[in-house]
C-alpha cells in the first residue's frame, strides 16, 4: 500500500457525510416547544430578581447592625443632616459632606466593597438560575 499524502487525501475525501434520523428536526422542534423562550424566562424571573436583591440587602443590613449599631446610627444621622442641609440651601454643604466622610468609622470602608460584592453575587445567582431554567449547556 502506498500511503503518500495524495492517497491519504483521496481516502479522506471519500469519508461519507453522516445522516441524522428522519425525525431529527421534529425532535429538535419538540424540545424547542418544551423549552420556554429566553425572553419569557427573563420576564418570569423579573420579580424574583428584585426579591433576591432585596433579601440580600436585608441580610447585609442585618449583618452590619449586628456588627456595629453605632455605625448605622452615624450613617443615618449624618445622611439626614446632609439632606436637611442640602434642602435648606446652606453654603456649607460641601464642608459638611467632607466632615461626614472624615467622621465615618474605618469599618465603613468595608461597606462599599460589600455592596459591590452583593451586586456581583446577585448577578451570579441570577445567571446560574437563568442557565438552569433554560436547560442549556
Amino acid at each position: 500500500m502506498n500511503l503518500n499524502d495524495e492517497y491519504i487525501d483521496q481516502l479522506l475525501g471519500k469519508v461519507p457525510k453522516e445522516k441524522v434520523a428522519p425525525d431529527f428536526a421534529d425532535q429538535v422542534m419538540q424540545k424547542l416547544e418544551k423549552q420556554a423562550t429566553p425572553q419569557s424566562i427573563k420576564q418570569a424571573m423579573l420579580p424574583e430578581r428584585y426579591l433576591l436583591l432585596i433579601s440580600l440587602l436585608m441580610v447585609m443590613l442585618t449583618l452590619v447592625f449586628m456588627a456595629d449599631f453605632s455605625l448605622i446610627n452615624t450613617y443615618f444621622s449624618q445622611s439626614v443632616q446632609f439632606i436637611l442641609t442640602y434642602f435648606q440651601g446652606r453654603q456649607e454643604v460641601l464642608p459638611s459632606v467632607l466632615d461626614t466622610v472624615r467622621n465615618l468609622p474605618a469599618l465603613s470602608l468595608v461597606i462599599f466593597p460589600a455592596i459591590g460584592l452583593l451586586l456581583i453575587l446577585q448577578a451570579l445567582l441570577q445567571k446560574t438560575g437563568f442557565k438552569q431554567a433554560a436547560k442549556l449547556f
Binding site: E18, K19, V28
Partner: peptide, 18 residues
C-alpha cells in the same frame, strides 16, 4: 426554525459523529 434545522442537520451531525 425547522427550515434551518433541516438544512444543516446532516452537517452538524457529521461533525459531532466524527
Amino acid at each position: 426554525y425547522k427550515k434551518l434545522v433541516v438544512r444543516y442537520q446532516d452537517m452538524v451531525m457529521s461533525i459531532a459523529m466524527r
